[in-house]
Nucleic acid binder design. Structure first.
Lengths: 113, 113
DNA sequence: TGGCTATATATTCATATGGTTATATAAGCA
DNA sequence: TGCTTATATAACCATATGAATATATAGCCA
């Protein structure tokens, strides 16, 4: 039950919920996530660290970038994320985030701006 | 999205998660919930107040008892609870709680013990 | 009415949480 | 090597959270 409760703790913060939904769609590096969500790098990194510590995402360094991807083995947890994605039209902020994934290249090399 | 996030906040505390699953099965009064979960009355009441304030449960006074029942209109939220119930064998504490509903009469008149 | 039961609420406290700013590290490139 | 970008982490702070204890209220019953 602890894993389930930790999962709900993760999703109970707007920033983390938005990150989880992004990563459900595809792996992304930190500065892409910052650019898509329009949030500061330390803020995004701190939440990613929490996701990583709880085992819900994994990271993978590729040259200067660190890519994060979801790591949800438990079907219950996966289905909960899926349920949100299936009803994404109820959540305009999240819908916008997902649409902005298409522009992710725009955000590489631009972390410092 | 705020409602969804509040819902996850509710489920991210063990006491509240257990109460929500109980009420998913049937309406119960405060002292029945205390007895089933083996938790103090102020603790249960405080969490019920939070559930009520957020609109996830409603209360209904019947003589000296106050009965609470779930109030989940949003199908996304309902399906999330359903998903947990469908996989209840993964969560022994919750499974035990639900089994103890059958003994609820035992806990009436016994709040003060 | 007085006392008991059921419940809500107030108070207090320790801890957790999340944000911001500053700094450290690591990799690529000139 | 020195600079720049990408990222992590530390430090600090304000606020939120949850637990326990004490108290208040409301309904029932003798």
């Amino acid at each position: 039950m602890d894993k389930l409760i930790n999962f709900f703790k993760i999703l109970s913060d707007e920033t983390r919920l938005r990150i989880m939904i992004l990563l459900y769609h595809q792996e992304l590096c930190v500065c892409e996530i910052c650019g898509i969500l329009e949030l500061s790098q330390p803020k995004v990194s701190k939440h990613l660290a929490k996701l990583r510590d709880m085992g819900f995402v994994r990271d993978d360094r590729q040259e200067q970038f660190i890519f994060y991807h979801l790591n949800l083995k438990d079907p219950v947890l996966k289905d909960i994320v899926q349920k949100i994605v299936d009803n994404i039209e109820n959540y305009p902020v999240i819908q916008r985030d997902v649409k902005r994934i298409a522009q992710k290249e725009k955000f590489l090399q631009l972390c410092k701006r």
